[in-house]
Design a protein around this nucleic acid. Structure first.
Lengths: 243, 243
DNA sequence: CGGAATGTTGATATGCCTCAACTAAAGTGG
DNA sequence: CCACTTTAGTTGAGGCATATCAACATTCCG
């Protein structure tokens, strides 16, 4: 398993230019690792964390909890992602961060990150950029959940997960991990379990993708991007994956 | 009309602590002002802008354009807002920025902003924080448009606009500008014109709010926040408005 | 004053929800 | 290793919220 420093560096280099001094400074970041069970919270809505999370292994999600108890997932994160970088400058968490399957995360003290930004402005800018790409993904989620019919929405979501897994080298040829239950897909896409089940069957019938046992299989990428109205430009990667 | 420097400073001070040196540095920012007609684009999806926008007067929005031509509004911005700060570190625009009504904006060269961040780290952090609050508003929009019935969604949106207008001193007692047509409200909330019309009438009947002639009237704030399931904590303001 | 843009209202269609029963798969303890 | 329980997914019936289409009313504005 790659050290979290390497994961973070790889992630930042997907969109930013870093010099040797930046890389060295990042490598000096202190962190403690924790492995968590499925469906365990790392940070909760209302908390004031003083560490930031880097995903090392597994899948981590952010979500809102509504007064009714209903859960709305906001984003999914895999190795190399910083699912709560924004907590650095926003004191009180407006959402929770928790695991989906078993996951290992590195916890980096905010103080170390702030010191790093003072020392290496370029690194600060790279992580700033990372949080901005995060925001671009949120924007796309607004559009996806507001303006597309359910089957398209589901296809788009799968496209994004596969594309991002490819970008960080976490996908095998034609497949990647996606350990979400249909209930959770519903909580991500604003749909009921039953509707997700039917939308999924619709997609299966196109033979462009399948999802089973927490593994997403992509058989016809070009067809799937059509079905999902997917255009990866909002992910702002420097070297778009060849798919 | 306040100079854009004052608007920006006021905005940043809503959530960040700035020293005298920071204020002075911000006041030295160069900018050119432009006044635009309603429904005019400032930056378009695909552009690579080298200036950032500060809203001086009027209402400015960000939106996606789907292949079908359908428009999805992502956010609304009023005086003091930076609707495309993220373009600083994200080269290619993944969405457009345009006016709703007649608006005046200040255009600040990216180079000047980057130089400012190098010189005054605290100012950089304040604008970073600003972009993070932006992201928090996107998250809330995901939840609003995905997990709430239409009438609640509309009430929540109106709560947010009124609350933000209050926070920057742009609201009169009991009302603020909100120059959106019902068609645009639909494109914001992922709903059709007809449904917005009916949801609006439902809200009017509660006597908690009304929207007419581009002016939002709030008659019963506490009732409206209930109807809209609105909790302002996601806006991350230091001194929550007393309403 | 006439034309365009905006909002209202009704009728009908439909996508998705809810509820419910059932199947299948995955853990768990004897 | 099997019976039991739990969790996940499938399928059907019926209902509701919202979409679509269309006609009309209203306001804005040149």
């Amino acid at each position: 398993m790659a050290a979290f420093h390497d994961l973070l560096i790889r992630k930042l280099q997907d969109h930013s230019e870093l010099g040797a001094a930046d890389l060295a400074a990042i490598r000096r970041l202190p962190a403690s690792e924790r492995t968590l069970r499925p469906n365990e919270d790392i940070v909760r809505q209302g908390d004031k964390p003083n560490v930031s999370v880097v995903v090392v292994e597994g899948t981590v999600a952010r979500y809102h909890t509504l007064p009714t108890g209903r859960r709305q997932y906001l984003s999914m994160h895999i190795a190399g992602d910083l699912p709560d970088a924004q907590a650095l400058f926003i004191e009180i968490m407006d959402h929770s961060v928790g695991t989906i399957d078993q996951a290992t995360v590195a916890l980096v003290p905010h103080s170390a990150l702030l010191a790093l930004f003072e020392e290496r402005t370029a690194t600060g800018f790279a992580i700033w950029r990372e949080t901005l790409i995060d925001a671009a993904i949120f924007r796309e989620a607004i559009t996806n959940n507001s303006a597309r019919p359910l089957r398209t929405r589901l296809a788009h979501f799968c496209c994004e997960q596969y594309y991002r897994a490819r970008a960080v080298g976490l996908a095998k040829p034609g497949s990647c991990r996606l350990p979400l239950t249909q209930t959770q897909l519903g909580e991500m896409l604003g749909a009921s379990l039953a509707s997700i089940a039917r939308a999924m069957q619709g997609l299966r019938k196109t033979r462009s993708m399948d999802l089973q046992g927490g593994e997403l299989f992509v058989n016809d990428w070009s067809r799937l991007t059509e079905l999902g109205d997917f255009n990866p430009s909002y992910l702002h990667l420097r070297k778009p994956s060849r798919l």
